[in-house]
Design a protein around this nucleic acid. Sequence first.
DNA 1: AAATAAACGAGACGGTACGTCAGGTCTTAGA
DNA 2: TCTAAGACCTGACGTACCGTCTCGTTTATTT
Lengths: 193, 193, 193, 193
Amino acid sequence: MAGPGRRGPKRSEEARVAILEAAARRVMTDGYDHLTMEGVATEAKVGKQTIYRWWPSRSALVADCLAERLLLPELFVPDDSGDLHADVTRWLDNIVGFLNAPGNAGLLHSLVVAAAENPDVAAILNDRLGLWEMLDERFTQAVTAGQLPPTTPVPELGDALIGAIVLRGLRNGDLGPTFTQGLVQLLLPPRET
Amino acid sequence: MAGPGRRGPKRSEEARVAILEAAARRVMTDGYDHLTMEGVATEAKVGKQTIYRWWPSRSALVADCLAERLLLPELFVPDDSGDLHADVTRWLDNIVGFLNAPGNAGLLHSLVVAAAENPDVAAILNDRLGLWEMLDERFTQAVTAGQLPPTTPVPELGDALIGAIVLRGLRNGDLGPTFTQGLVQLLLPPRET
Amino acid sequence: MAGPGRRGPKRSEEARVAILEAAARRVMTDGYDHLTMEGVATEAKVGKQTIYRWWPSRSALVADCLAERLLLPELFVPDDSGDLHADVTRWLDNIVGFLNAPGNAGLLHSLVVAAAENPDVAAILNDRLGLWEMLDERFTQAVTAGQLPPTTPVPELGDALIGAIVLRGLRNGDLGPTFTQGLVQLLLPPRET
Amino acid sequence: MAGPGRRGPKRSEEARVAILEAAARRVMTDGYDHLTMEGVATEAKVGKQTIYRWWPSRSALVADCLAERLLLPELFVPDDSGDLHADVTRWLDNIVGFLNAPGNAGLLHSLVVAAAENPDVAAILNDRLGLWEMLDERFTQAVTAGQLPPTTPVPELGDALIGAIVLRGLRNGDLGPTFTQGLVQLLLPPRET
DNA sequence: AAATAAACGAGACGGTACGTCAGGTCTTAGA
DNA sequence: TCTAAGACCTGACGTACCGTCTCGTTTATTT
């Protein structure tokens, strides 16, 4: 967009940040479906056109918020302590703990809606957030280490894990220890003791 | 709403059906997020008030469409042939086949959005559609029959199965045989040969 | 627009009047070029769409204000006392007095702009206001009565009279007795005494 | 361009002319009310600031276009052949011919609007264009020569003449020979035969 | 039968937000 | 230091729908 030998003023970093922060704040408080461009513009003290100049839609705005870690600040990297059960359990507890935190009640709903409405958001959630990537890595490592059978369908394992969480979350179902332990027991081979 | 000794005309079944069909058509063609009450009213040749008289919101409308099987006509009942692998594989192929069908491209997205925005829709998808219920039943039966270990966390198994499908669908990812076979292999114990 | 056997609610006279009055007020205070649809809507406590439903543009709004005598309440009918000089002088003084009145400073400018931008406004000023028509009538009568030569080009006489006033007004020039007397002397044959 | 011993570039004559020509072109084609600063800047390949540096408003731009004869190239100087009727008739025909020329349809409207909205434009039209001045001169000469009575209110005569034209033009009325002849007959004393 | 009342189609109403256009100011890089 | 480019905040544009509220018509019960 901005060539190297471009004339004119540079994009205002101040405005950019103010917009993203306002958008993230609105999503957290009111949910994605009550997010409006005008609301963001007002809250960010910015002209509407400044938003539309750089983002084509509110979902693109949310995608950028995600990319800048303004909505999901934590990375949820699974540990690699050698104990797969423990690592996955801890990872699950982290995520579930985050989703159960007071302010994050509607966040999952918002992100799912945003992702369903805009492939870019889905892509960001996929790639930039790295949930799948990190799980794949950890599970591939587990296969190498013999903690998982070599025939394990790693991608499906990730989908099943995250999918179960999302589904439960959408239904406002139980996201407690019963759930996480059930998942671990279901998806990981019995711990050899 | 309509007392026994009520005066005046009865609720018009014609209008009711026209509205639901128009709504279902719109969701199928344009997606849930482009569904508008005015659009439905126009397409159903009905006054807006007639919609608002009976449904409080567009998501309630979609919930009713679901309940009337106008959006998901099939029931996806898992077989019980005694061969769990085969039954689950067939069930998965049915669902995936439906989702991959030409007209149903955006349907999953629409339903997820509707469910995320309105708990009633989520409840309908849960209860009335009976996906979880039927899976639970089949898996419980499998536990009884010794096809699954008695410790199997049945609810989580259902969530993992459906969750993986939904997640893949949302990302427009591969919903082919590799995926379904991977899921079966992952979630069911190895077939005893 | 509204057929005779139309169902539905009737057009709200309250809203119609509020809009016209707000528009007229704005034109009087701020001038036609600062007239905005949003301003009118706000001042009339009306939705914007209610304005656009009935008037296609702000000039149409002004045209209607004129037609309803909200901007030019007086009719400026020339007398017919038999004394043409006196009658025309009185008519001129009326008009000039109106234009010179405190609140009406920018009105002429506004109306000229509105008329130049929208033929409908021009037509209203022509026909409904009846300036030309009344002058034509008076002058035709004068021709009949022998107060004007039979060859008098009556339409041009009206244009010259009104045109001179408009031109002076636009330039914020002198609109005093010198001007009116000059016009009378110029355009009417010398008084026979 | 830059004189010797001068620091920094002088005002770009190229830019100035390009701006004025673009503005004049826009007024001729789209009319004054569709004239935009951004449009002129784009068409003149000039930064907006370069316009605002030298002209405070679009009406000032139009005023300058007038002053540079980019909009009204002709001067409309009345002849002084000794025959007042002929001279005025010729002058009227010139003006009317210009206004009736194909490309000049909306020009009168545009100029009237610009003049009504901005006194500077009105002043330019008054002074620089010299319509009134030249008419005054010619009529004063006519008075001296005895072609007009000594009591003729010369300024009002000019206003009546030009005002009639403007009014007719605004109403898109007839600007043909009937009109011009009528005006001459009305405003000038009968030709002495 | 007449009166009554609800449901219907139509659509006007006050609003909110949309996405765009232009205004006028300010900033940057190039000549 | 003037220019071309263009980002910025502001505000109005005209449109799409929202959910509510009349209208006048059409049924279906009571009285």
